[in-house]
Write a protein that binds this DNA or RNA. Structure first.
Length: 689
DNA sequence: AGCAATTCTCTTTTT
DNA sequence: GAGAATTGCT
């Protein structure tokens, strides 16, 4: 069986670290609880919350005080709420939600911070215009010409934006004649030209905004935070995540009253997965802690996490102690997740002072083995592992890749990924949006075209569900007006809508739509496609075109421009749809290293190469500097190590790694970590594998 | 040839 | 939106 027996000594030891934590909260001694993967950090956090509640609830209630529990994601917040159960003295939320909740009433102070921010941004633009070499030719102009240049471009703003993504030569032709006649020097280099015009427009927007604030214009009287947007729109009085934290910090730093207000309200602040939270959050906590000490006010701040599991560049990671000094430290060495064989390798991957051991006395029986081969072995390798561990729906094999592209390829929707990757709106700066708008498991983040395809595939799968196919499509009211016979006919009509490619499917749907008399059918189709204009094949194509290729609008060319999209196989769209839904009714599941954080799987395969995307040689560098005295100072070493550590520690029992690049130079260190490296070839026998 | 401009090619994730 | 690779210009 395994992982079931615990001896009393270990259990007592584990309890000791928890009690140390409780003692810290009693003494208002701020603390960091560091422990590795699978050690039950969230469990310790929930226990601490319960301890504080049990001993202080009445007192907190009398003073109208709360315990603040701060998480990195909404999912984590919900998870903790579930484990904790309802409590009237605990507020569990993300840091953004908590900060906004605290500061949103300070309208006047926020407005003045906003004005300051606008001023700083304008000064920054001015500075670039005056110093950046890209703008030399602009600087050489006299004031009057600068003014005139701006006037011309501002009058042609619409044309400018429309032409923005065109190729350089076409972009130039799309710009007004006057520019070519009077400012030929500025437009000779298109990218510099765009940089300049963007900055001038931005400055104009910011100046207008400041005027509007000053005159108290409607819509300019308060700042809003919108969690849906990833970018500030300062000129629209809208801030995003980073600026929210920035404003929060500034308020706390500037106004003692603000610090007082927070520590009066929250004498206990517990932070989950601290390594992921932004530096500035820790700076806020440090200010609060120092202020509380100064005025002899009781405040307890506890950080729960593991600096080695910091895999996002924005997280504070091991800088915690630099930014928040004088923290006590509690650690825990027990692991409750994995078999000893896995724990030992994980210890070697992180190779620091935290050396875990299993809390179970029956913890041997797992296995870890590294093979080397090349990219074309991957499929065979995965299948060998699936066979070895009899992967099936109930105990699937989980395969971890570095990139979404690989996950898309192996999950069977590479074409979907490529079509969107190549779409015009995701070129240039939009590139970062691609993953969130195509691969978000939370459908609210899907892009416009993606959301439409999602609705379409939802209908497609729902009408094919064996039981009550239309249950989720209709509300009960809509059901009532249809006779059983009509309903049956409708279901079989919907089921008959099929095709090889997206284009085929759309054609069938709209063919039927144009000849059908069935009002309910029409209603369903209208609801799925949700067009502003009339619902038709052409308008859907136009919808795809305008959401993916902003600079195209000639109706004739539509089919050509989006032909790659239309040629996607329905089967691929289905695979994508299931991936989005985490509908893992498969014997083999694929994930990126990052997306598995916090999860655990019985059997794991990791496909590893020397690179991490654009971060060339990341994992190779990790192995090259492994064990060297100064390795800890190398950012690349740390980044590679952290990602690999997170990946490896997902495993409960069996782990296989396939290294698909040349390992000559790093073989020694690879073997130091993973033990003997075996060569993998496609004709390897099942027995020797 | 040498420099300037353009085009291509990239990672992960959350708020 | 940075950095490399390619094309274009003189």
């Amino acid at each position: 069986m395994g992982l079931s027996e615990i001896n009393n000594e270990d259990l007592d030891n584990e309890k000791l670290s928890l009690e140390k934590l409780f003692q810290c909260s009693d003494d208002f001694d701020s603390v960091v609880f560091n422990s590795g993967a699978g050690s039950g950090k969230t469990y310790a956090l929930v226990k601490s919350l319960k301890y504080v509640i049990t001993h202080n609830r009445e007192n907190l209630k009398i003073h109208n005080q709360k315990i603040a529990c701060i998480t990195y994601t909404n999912v984590a917040a919900e998870n903790i709420r579930q484990q904790l159960g309802a409590s009237d003295v605990v507020e569990v939320s993300t840091i953004h939600e908590r900060i906004w909740h605290i500061i949103c009433d300070q309208k006047t102070a926020l407005l003045s911070l906003h004005i300051e921010k606008l001023k700083r941004e304008i000064a920054y633009i001015d500075n670039q215009l005056q110093n950046k070499s890209d703008f030399e030719k602009y600087r050489a102009l006299d004031e009057e010409s600068k003014e005139q240049f701006f006037e011309i471009m501002y009058a042609n703003k619409r044309e400018y934006n429309k032409a923005y993504n065109l190729r350089a030569a076409e972009f130039k032709t799309a710009m007004p004649q006057e520019i070519h006649l009077q400012f030929a020097g500025l437009i000779s280099n298109v990218s510099k030209f765009k940089g300049l015009v963007d900055k001038l427009f931005k400055k104009k927007r910011y100046l207008d905004c400041m005027n509007n604030i000053e005159s108290g214009k409607k819509g300019y009287r308060e700042v809003t935070y919108d969690a849906m947007y990833n970018r500030d729109r300062l000129d629209k009085m809208r801030i995003s995540h980073d600026t929210l934290l920035e404003y929060g910090y500034e308020l706390v730093e500037k106004y003692p009253r603000m610090r007082q207000l927070i520590i009066d309200r929250y004498p206990y602040i517990l932070i989950d997965e601290y390594q992921d939270t932004a530096d500035i959050v820790v700076k806020i906590m440090n200010l609060l802690d120092k202020y509380a000490k100064k005025i002899h006010h009781e405040l307890f701040i506890a950080y729960f996490g593991d600096s080695v599991q910091n895999i996002y560049d924005t997280g504070v990671g091991k800088k915690l102690n630099d930014l928040h000094s004088d923290l006590s430290s509690v650690s825990k060495i027990y692991n409750r997740r994995s078999y000893t064989e896995v724990i030992n390798v994980a210890n070697k991957v992180r190779n620091d002072e935290i050396i875990q051991k299993s809390i179970y006395s029956d913890s041997s029986g797992g296995s870890v083995k590294l093979y080397y081969g090349n990219a074309k072995n991957v499929n065979n390798f995965i299948n060998k592992c699936a066979k070895k561990w009899k992967a099936q729906e109930e105990t699937p094999l989980h395969c971890l890749f570095a990139t979404n592209q690989m996950v898309a390829e192996y999950s069977g929707f590479l074409k979907v990924y490529e079509v969107f990757k190549n779409a015009e709106v995701y070129q240039g700066i939009g590139y970062k949006q691609l993953n969130s708008e195509l691969l978000s498991h939370d459908t609210i983040h899907l892009g416009k075209a993606q959301a439409l395809l999602y609705r379409l595939m939802k209908l497609y799968t729902e009408v094919r569900e064996p039981k009550q196919p239309l249950r989720r499509i209709f509300t009960t009211n809509e059901y009532r007006n249809i006779s059983f016979a009509n309903l049956k006919a409708l279901v079989s009509l919907l089921q008959s809508l099929d095709g090889n490619t997206l284009d085929d499917l759309l054609s069938v749907i709209f063919n039927q739509y144009s000849i059908s008399e069935d009002k309910t059918y029409k209603f369903i189709i209208e609801k799925i496609f949700d067009m502003d204009e009339e619902t038709s094949y052409d308008s859907v194509l136009k919808y795809f075109l305008t959401s993916l290729y902003k600079s195209w609008d000639e109706a004739i060319e539509t089919k050509v421009v989006i032909s790659d999209l239309l040629n996607i196989k329905v089967e691929e769209l289905l695979n994508w749809f299931h991936y989005i839904n985490r509908d893992e009714k498969k014997s083999i599941c694929y994930h990126t290293f990052h997306s598995t954080k916090g999860l655990e799987y019985e059997n794991v395969v990791i496909i590893l190469g020397k690179d991490f995307g654009v971060d060339r040689g990341l994992f190779e560098i990790y192995f090259k500097s492994y064990g060297k005295a100064d390795a800890g100072n190398s950012l690349k070493y740390e980044k590679g190590r952290n990602i690999l550590y997170v990946a490896v520690t997902r495993t409960i029992k069996n782990l296989r790694i396939l290294y698909i690049d040349n390992l000559e130079e790093i073989k020694n260190n690879i073997e130091n970590v993973f033990g003997k490296a075996y060569e993998f070839s496609d004709n390897i026998t099942d027995e020797s594998f």
